[in-house]
Write a protein that binds this DNA or RNA. Structure first.
Lengths: 336, 336
DNA sequence: ATGAAAGCGCTAACAG
DNA sequence: CTGTTAGCGCTTTCAT
């Protein structure tokens, strides 16, 4: 069979305990002993058995990432930020997707799959009220949320209210008054991001004495197609908006497409602004409020590692808010 | 501490061996005994310790996915297909990204991180000649490749030669003769996909008696930006092409953008065709050869599971080839 | 159909 | 600084 720690111990003429210490870099090992052991381990091509190590130590050296989507831009970008940090820390990354609260496909709930299997959990953009999220938090293990905010749980987000305010104010500054909103879903359990962005929009509209016409709001479900349908709906109003704020870039892409389908040009005829800084936004010339998505993942992972060292749940410090930035492109222009 | 199998055994009045069998659905357990044990396990909120189970059984119940990128469309889409299958099979999915052979950032090589840690490996689009790939294959564990082809290793791909032929023939059929090519990289270790697509292109050009002008080939590095630069280079030729085949949709997107920058319209002035069926291709009205990316991941994962049951490396049957389909959109039009 | 018992390979006190 | 000694919690023959 495979080489075990005992083989190394015998070959090096020491006990398994010493090998264990030496190879893990623990103190109280003579440096000459350590280097001899390391050499033997290499010569024998020894690889530690994670299962045995985990069983004996009680630590799994693994972190789970829970996400409602894998293939969507925001989620895969966050994931990539997370992965870099965990890999550098020598942690295994277990990827688990969960059915989002809208999708039907039944999947096993994540919480049971986490117990005794990982030392910490990273959750991407699950609605705070989602029972699956509650179950995960009730596990009592180090956890960090990405893109959403819940009291008492460490999280990394942007200031969604502010981001929406900036986007909306940009439209107002351009002279627009009839401003439409493409929001996410009609579900009762919205993301905090969604809720906050709507708030920011309403705040700025109110502050500028602008009416919010309910017929100028449509659901885009955070997808391109949804955004397209939403924009189409807005265009068929008696008086269409002169500008539209989409809560995400992907919905904004759809909105732009709907415009083109109707012979209209984004910017020239109707202004569109989004939030995200999606890879394609530059390419599509979309004005947007950029959020540092990769960093969201990176920093959440780092904060989780800190929690795990501290062995304490919830002790990840205050919620982290990363800055955003408005990038003005061709999809927005002064009201004529 | 946590509930162990012994607690369950005592509470159910049986031995731990019986509990183990009962809970794993093994035969030779009286059904009444089994259901009693299951009930007790639920009542006690028992969760098996994966570490202990793995140590005792020698199986890890985990599969690693090795990928050069996480956040790019093709890779995250494959990953999502893989994840669904593995989750349904109760396997843990370990995500590991590797530096692609171009990128500089040093990461630990994947092979050592795999040993004793997973029962099988899925590798996405790593060049067959990449030494890291060789090391993984030398591990001798069940492995399945996605998007590339190597002798003797199970793989799931499309027929890249054919896909390229179809794309090229489409341009030829439209009357184009000066056809440009945006290829991937200049590296010595190309993907089989890249090589095959180039072959398909050259075949069709030759079959139709068309010259391949070396000045009408440019590198796009499989990125949007690269595609944009490549197209820009082609446009500055003395006689630009009337149509361009990009080896991937993302490069085609970049090419379309370059056209617009130069006041040209895709389709009307210069035809562009890609390969992928990227999410955004419909939105951007790009003619493309669609490949079933999600299924690539799904089927590779299923094939790996079969291999793992058979306990045999390489016995994943013949390479699987999934069908592709040309979708004609506005980015290609007859030569004028 | 069920139980007894021997590990799986490592870690972590506790001695020394 | 190093060794001894118990386990960690399960699986798996081998009996019965």
């Amino acid at each position: 069979m495979a080489i075990t720690i005992r083989d190394v111990a015998e070959a090096a003429g020491v006990s398994t305990a010493t090998v264990s210490r030496a190879l893990r870099g623990l103190p109280y090992v003579d440096e000459s002993t350590r280097s001899r052991i390391q050499q033997v381990a290499v010569d024998l091509d020894y690889v530690i058995s994670p299962s045995a190590s985990r069983l004996a130590s009680g630590r799994t050296g693994s972190v789970a990432v829970i996400t409602p989507f894998i293939a969507r831009w925001f989620f895969s970008t966050v994931l990539s930020g997370v992965e870099g940090v965990l890999q550098a820390a020598g942690m295994d990354l277990l990827l688990m997707s969960v059915s989002d609260y809208l999708a039907g496909h039944q999947r096993l709930p994540p919480a049971p799959r986490l117990r005794r299997r990982v030392d910490g959990v990273l959750v991407i953009a699950m609605p705070p009220s989602d029972p699956q999220l509650r179950e995960i938090l009730d596990l009592g293990m180090p956890t960090s949320l990405i893109g959403v905010n819940t009291d008492g749980v460490p999280s990394v987000t942007i200031d969604d209210v502010l981001a929406a305010r900036v986007a909306t104010q940009h439209l107002v500054n351009l002279g627009h008054e009839r401003i439409g909103l493409i929001t996410g879903s009609s579900a009762e359990a919205p993301l905090t991001a969604e809720y906050d962005r709507e708030q920011g929009f309403r705040q700025v509209m109110a502050e500028n004495g602008l009416d919010i016409d309910p017929s100028l709001e449509a659901f885009g479900y955070f997808t391109i197609q949804g955004g397209e349908q939403a924009m189409t709906a807005l265009l068929t109003q008696r008086t269409p908006p002169t500008a539209v704020f989409a809560l995400s870039d992907e919905m904004a892409f759809g909105a732009m497409r709907a415009l083109r389908t109707h012979g209209l040009a984004p910017g020239r005829d109707i202004s569109i602004v989004g939030i995200d800084g999606h890879d394609m936004s530059e390419h599509l010339d979309l004005t947007t409020v950029v959020q540092p998505v990769y960093d969201l993942g990176r920093i959440a992972a780092e904060s989780l590692l800190v929690q795990m060292r501290t062995l304490s749940q919830g002790d990840g410090g205050d919620p982290v808010r990363l800055p955003t930035q408005l990038i003005v492109r061709g999809s927005t222009a002064p009201h004529r």
